[in-house]
Structures are given as C-alpha cells and as structure tokens.
Amino acid sequence: MTLLSVVFYVLAAVLVGSSAMVISVRNPVKAALFLVLCFFSAACIWITLEAEFLAITLVLVYVGAVMVLFLFVVMMLDIDIVQMREGFTRYLPVGAVIAGIMMVEIALVVLSGRFELDNVARPAGQPADYSNTRELGLLLYTDYVLAFEVAGLILLVAIVAAIALTLRRRPETLYQKPSMQVQVKKSDRLRVVDVPSGTRQGDVE
C-alpha cells in the first residue's frame, strides 16, 4: 500500500462519512456545512489525480460561491423539520425495499470483477511543469470556442430569464426614488407656524 492509496482511503472515508452526515443531521445549516466538507474532500481526491484546475475550481465555485449562497437561503427559509419528516414511517418500507434493490444491483455490478484495479492500467503521470490549466484553456479557446461562446449565451439567457421572471413592479410595494429625494425643498416638508407667546400649539389650529 503506497502513501497515495493511504491518502486516497482517508479522503474517501471523509467524503463518504460527510455525505452520510449531509442527509442525516437534523440541522440544515450543519448539513450544508457537511456538504462543504464533501466538496473539499472531493477536490483533494482530484488533486491526487493530477486534476489541479478542476479541484481548485470546485473549491472556488462550489465552496466559495454556491454553498455560501445556499447557506444564506437555508438560514433565511423557515424550514419546519417536523413537517418535513411527516410520513417518514409511512414511506419507510417502500423506500427501504427500493434502496435494498439498488444496493443489490450496485453490488452485482461492482463485485462482478470488471472494476478491479488490475483491469485498467494506471495512466502515466505528467512531468512537474505540466499545466493542465493551460491545456484546458487551449482546448476551450481554440478547438471548442464555439461551444464555449454558446455556453456563455446560455448563462446570459439564464440571467435574463431569471430577472424577467422575478422583477416586477408591484403597486403596493414602496420604493425610494433618489432623484425626488434629492430635489425635495424645505417648503415641501416644513411648515413654519407662528405661535404667539402664552398659547399652546394646540390652540392655534
């Protein structure tokens, strides 16, 4: 057992353990944090596979951006755990049967001997100065430039669609209008009342 396989098994154990925690902890914030741990362990495994760029992207994009957004959403939503667990016992037998069948099927496939490590030769490692960021960049901006540009269009459409579907002026919503706030004059807001001495203000009106 080489050092690399020790590292792999440790990382894989953390990954599987934290995945189990994601679906089993009661607190959704903790579940989201365990998901962060999952992504991080997966990124580490990718590093051992020499896919540095993908690993760093996974951490930056998923841990850095997506999960932070996700945490915000989880914290802002009022999730009723009791309501979500309702019917758990009712669906348990069906779920258990399906899960059991799937486990047997996976076991049949995985233990069939086709996935033994000896079946696939280990790809030769790249030299230390090899940059897979550069290789990916070359592919993306030359051979697959059209696909890259169209993917950009898809993201643009997603932004436009999301804004078009959610942005609307509701008459009952109150807005601040900065231009009008700036233009406001003293006479619009302030009324100077001449109060004779010896009287209370209420008497004047």
């Binding site: 169209v150 269009l153 898809i154 459409v157 997603a158 436009v160 669609a161 078009a164 579907l165």
Partner: peptide, 13 residues
C-alpha cells in the same frame, strides 16, 4: 446538446 439547452432555457422562461 448546448443548442438543445439554449433553446430549452428560452422556452421555459
């Protein structure tokens, strides 16, 4: 595939 997705995304919206 990306053509299909671009069209589909527009249609959903």
């Amino acid at each position: 595939y990306i053509g299909v997705e671009l069209l589909a995304l527009c249609l959903y919206a």
